[in-house]
Design a protein around this nucleic acid. Structure first.
Length: 271
DNA sequence: CCCGATTCCTGTAGGC
DNA sequence: TGCCTACAGGAATCGG
């Protein structure tokens, strides 16, 4: 599933193929995604040049003369750069057809993703307006986590997955960063010290950076036919390892549901 | 304001 | 072997 590193990888992968190219056509086969594909997206895009593809949180933004395409991959979405004549497969919901035989194809079995068109500045769009800082930017810090967490009683795992606090920390990397930082995922966010948040912020940064490097290794595949899993899964310390020995102390990794999401942790190394 | 529960959807894994 | 159910998960939205 696309986490921030894969979204970043996808964005870097498609950008050189579509930037500077004119849109010839937009084909929508399935409008019913997380939000309905914007009516009129074809009329808005046709004939326009996409001059930039970039990422904000887990959104991929395509900038053209008159506005932006906002794409989210949800849980199962993918974007591929293909040739015009590539046969349709199941769940191929949207095509953006470019000049020079370039086709950008959105496929999403579970339809949790979206493809929207907006003429607003994207940072003012409803979906993007209240997002917190990028985890790999200077605006993100332990101090920020400390400040925003005061008086908050929610579990720290839910807190760091809150996109208004910091973007891009999904279920997998929340478990991983909390293990790396030695913090129990169920601990109340408001009862964690500044020093421990400094450590946590550093661990969030580190795990996402490493995953982007590993995501880079899936980059070679994603333009091709299959969605291969990538190597980052081999580097996970706790996620999906219930019952297996902790890599630090050998005690069995525990699993429990926190905020309706499966969480993995070591009861000895995390407190 | 804050938080937990609910919701969207389908492929996959597990049980019987 | 095959069917059926439970579950996974990003994130908006709603209700308390």
């Amino acid at each position: 599933m696309p986490e921030l590193p894969e979204v970043e990888t996808t964005c870097r992968g498609i950008a050189p193929h579509i930037e500077g190219r004119r849109v010839l056509d937009v084909r929508v086969r399935e409008r019913r995604l997380r939000w309905p594909v914007t009516r009129g997206i074809k009329g808005a895009l046709q004939g326009q040049c996409v001059d930039q593809a970039y990422r904000r949180a887990k959104y991929i933004l395509l900038r053209s003369d008159g506005g932006h395409v906002i794409i989210h991959l949800g849980m199962s979405g993918s974007l591929r750069v293909l040739q015009h004549n590539t046969p349709i497969q199941t769940h191929d919901h949207v095509d953006i057809v470019f000049e020079d035989n370039v086709l950008l194809r959105f496929n999403d079995p579970r339809r949790f993703g979206c493809v929207l068109w907006t003429t607003q500045p994207p940072e003012q769009h409803k979906l993007l307006a209240s997002l917190g800082p990028e985890p790999l930017s200077a605006a993100f810090s332990g101090e920020l986590l400390f400040r925003l967490s005061r008086k908050r009683k929610a579990a720290v795992k839910n807190f760091i997955m809150d996109g208004a606090v910091v973007v891009g920390v999904g279920n997998i990397y929340a478990s991983e960063a909390l293990f790396d930082a030695g913090i129990h995922p169920n601990r109340a966010a408001g009862r964690i010290s500044r020093a421990r948040y400094e450590r946590l912020a550093e661990c969030i940064r580190a795990v996402l950076s490493r995953a982007i490097e590993s995501g880079g290794s899936t980059l070679r595949d994603f333009l091709r036919a299959d969605g291969s899993p990538g190597y980052f899964q081999q580097e996970l310390h706790v996620y999906g390892r219930e019952g297996e020995p902790c890599m630090r102390c050998k005690r069995a990794i525990a699993q429990s549901v926190i905020g309706q999401r499966s969480s993995f942790f070591c009861t000895r190394c995390q407190s």
